[in-house]
Amino acid sequence: MKIAVGCDPNAQAYKEEMIEYIKSLGHEVTDFGSDDVIYAHVATKVAEAVAAKEYDRGVLFCGTGIGVMLAANKVKGAYAANVWNVYSAKRACLSNNCNIITLGCQVTGNMLAKELISAYLNETYVRNERSGKKVDAIVEYEQNH
């Protein structure tokens, strides 16, 4: 898969380690940077590229992962989830069809972050009776507002 990655300056070293890890899983990675202290700028650039389907998925980092999640979710067609355990990372894809995950370098250790990224990237959303209607409702609301 093609993965878009970005972060704020606080998460630069963390992001670099995660990029190498994602590459080791066999994915192509594009780094959208980390120089802008306004994390919303890089988060929306990643989200726009993922929503435009230039990339299959995105991974964003900041201190908690919350700020970049909020910014990414402002982009139409971007669905970002802040993940904190393996189950949430898997369900972000399987239940919610999220195309971006976010992680916090100040709250999630490097080894756990790698497990979360791997868990997320190893899943594929398949529309089903249980989750499909819920995801459809989110997309429909977005299209109408």
Rank of each mutant, 00 (worst) to 15 (best):
M1S: 11
M1F: 04
I3C: 06
A4E: 00
P9W: 05
P9T: 00
N10C: 13
Q12I: 15
Y14V: 01
E17R: 10
I19S: 04
G26I: 04
H27T: 00
E28S: 09
V29E: 06
S34K: 08
Y39F: 13
T44L: 09
K45W: 10
A47H: 05
E48Q: 13
V50Y: 02
A52F: 02
K53R: 13
E54K: 14
E54V: 09
Y55E: 03
D56F: 04
F61L: 10
F61R: 03
F61Q: 03
T64N: 09
G65P: 08
M69F: 00
M69K: 12
L70P: 09
G77T: 04
A78V: 07
V83L: 11
N85M: 06
Y87W: 11
Y87A: 13
S88P: 08
S88D: 13
A89T: 08
R91E: 13
C93N: 11
L94G: 05
L94K: 12
N97D: 15
C98R: 00
N99K: 04
N99D: 06
I100T: 01
I101M: 01
I101D: 04
I101A: 01
T102C: 08
Q106V: 08
V107G: 02
T108C: 09
G109A: 03
N110R: 12
M111D: 15
L112S: 05
L112C: 03
L112Q: 07
L112F: 07
A113R: 06
E115C: 10
S118H: 12
Y120C: 03
D136P: 00
I138R: 13
I138M: 15
I138A: 10
V139P: 08
E140H: 11
E142Q: 14
Q143F: 10
N144H: 15
